[in-house]
Design a protein around this nucleic acid. Structure first.
Lengths: 331, 331
DNA sequence: GTGAAAGCGCTAACAG
DNA sequence: CTGTTAGCGCTTTCAC
């Protein structure tokens, strides 16, 4: 037996297809008794409106794409998974459904009229954004800012986070503070790097070459970089890492060198991911409300699709330092 | 300016719409020179076939739904995110696009002709499966098995994992082995519990009440449960936890009680998530290839959609114990 | 190889 | 409140 259509329901219930359609889209514009007959017929036939035909007639799909612009071994890491979850949760209850993919893959399968809007997470390229805008598809950016584009961007307060970390470390008496930067997106890297330089300078502290070093985005690479850093005679007394995985690498290196945490070395991470409370000592970290960022994406997208003109162009989500044992001054 | 249609291309290139259509779907059935003219016109107009109209004409959407059947604070945790990533990666390069949602939300927005197939991750309810099957939508299950349904299931070798853990602990001299079970899905819980009982029995070891205890699925709950467990006079010398987060809770409890790891207590987790190498000592765990499970989902789905009759009904993905310092016998 | 034309199943005027 | 009808933009026979 084939999928029933609106015609089958029309025939069985004895009303026109228009009325059947109305019954499903604007029930209040149909007389109660009619509505009941239609529902009964629909139920008997297991009828459900065809999403395809509806999209065809209305010229819209009610679908939003969530595209991750990121490379590397893991695309959907804890950070982006949390954002995605936020988007999903806010999409729930709306009529919108979520398509998930990578930016790369999306461009491969170019088709028009696929989606109503797109959320670009991470390091979105300018030409990708332009292409969507040319097609009049609303774009929202998350964890990135796009210079020269008129669209909502949702970012964490990177500078504020860095400031909190450095202030905390300085007030705990640290002077030699190093920063371990993974290979993050240009936006994140420059935001944090510049903030670090500013805050250090403001406090009369210098950042020499050893003060900010780069490593790959995995724990081994971080461990190796930290081993080199901490073996120097002028080793820092505190290290601020770009995420919690890198911070774990630093802790590992410290232990290997026989340094005590936090007495000999304070460590602070970023993201406040699920590992922080598992570490020994527990890892201080900047809490980023990724879930909220995802929710904001969807909220702003919904507003855009609703024709709102006052959607904020930049939303900075506050972050806050969770001080734990890895950086707490000994009592 | 509106989105160009196939008629615009037809007019500009001077061929019929049928030929334009062919040029995009079956290029080899169109003369080279014609093809070129069509492409040129399409490019000039920025034409891309409308996904909606194409779906309408072909009566298919080329979309697969990935539905997570799970409750709790975090839906897209590391485990499911990895499966999702596997699905995504395998979907790349095919014509299929991925819709992501929760089972709950999906049932709310019932429409027909939305998707070609569905991947149900986790604790899928029987009536949900039935509903899809009634609609002739192929279903693939992951991290779950459904009794009484004829569909491909992809699971990890839970029993094998438990067996490896217990064997490892026994050969390291442990006799009092406890199991800390989080509130996982019925499938996972029963698979592991039954395996644990069998293997212990086979080795002449008893599992009394204290041997298998339940806790919630967070680190605090695990820590509390472990504190109680490890405070007993007949405390176990080894604990096997249902995932790495719970294992971290056990380690935390052990430290708080002044137990040395692994000398006084061996700990083994499950999943081999990203935290294992960050822990101190590094956490032994059962490695589960979630990414691969996701890839298999998509491979089997593609086969199903391709009309293959020989898609395996059950695929058990091997797991293997990564022995790390948390359970390694001191040398 | 190409064109003409009939749908795909629904929605949205418009008319009653 | 309900019915009639004209599309939505493509694909796909069926002729030529």
């Amino acid at each position: 037996m084939d999928t029933p259509t609106i015609y089958d329901v029309s025939r069985l219930s004895g009303v026109s297809t228009a009325t059947v359609s109305r019954t499903f889209t604007t029930p209040d514009r149909v007389r109660e008794s009619t509505r009941r007959r239609v529902y009964a017929a629909a139920e008997a036939l297991h009828y459900q409106p065809s999403a395809i035909a509806r999209a065809m007639a209305r010229q819209q799909t009610d679908k939003i794409a969530f595209l991750i612009c990121k490379e590397g071994a893991t695309i959907l890491d804890e950070f982006y998974a949390s954002i995605c979850e936020g988007v999903m949760r806010r999409a729930n209850g709306t009529n919108y459904q979520l398509l998930i993919s990578t930016a790369e893959e999306w461009t491969r399968t170019a088709q028009s009229k696929q989606i109503e809007g797109v959320i670009l997470a991470g390091n979105a390229q300018a030409d990708l954004i332009s292409e969507f805008q040319r097609q009049n598809i609303p774009v929202v950016l998350v964890n990135n800012r796009a210079a020269g584009f008129n669209l909502p961007c949702i970012v964490a307060d990177e500078a504020g986070g860095v400031r909190q970390v450095v202030s905390h470390l300085i007030s705990a008496g640290h002077q030699r503070i190093a920063m371990l930067m993974g290979r993050f997106s240009p936006y994140v890297t420059s935001a944090r790097y510049n903030a670090f330089l500013s805050v250090m300078r403001e406090n009369g502290l210098s950042v020499d070459e050893s003060g900010a070093l780069m490593c790959d985005r995995d724990i081994q690479s971080a461990t190796e970089a930290a081993l080199r850093l901490l073996s120097r005679p002028d080793r820092p007394s505190a290290v601020f890492a770009f995420n919690d995985v890198l911070a774990a690498g630093v802790m590992k290196a410290a232990r290997r060198l026989g340094l005590r945490l936090p007495e000999d070395l304070a460590v602070v991470g970023f993201d406040d991911s699920s590992v922080c409370p598992m570490m020994e000592p527990e890892l201080s970290s900047i809490h980023v409300d990724c879930r909220r960022m995802g929710e904001l994406c969807m909220e702003h997208m919904a507003a855009l699709l609703d024709g709102a003109q006052d959607v904020p162009r930049l939303t900075v989500v506050p972050v806050n330092l969770k001080i734990r044992a890895s950086s707490r001054a000994a009592i």
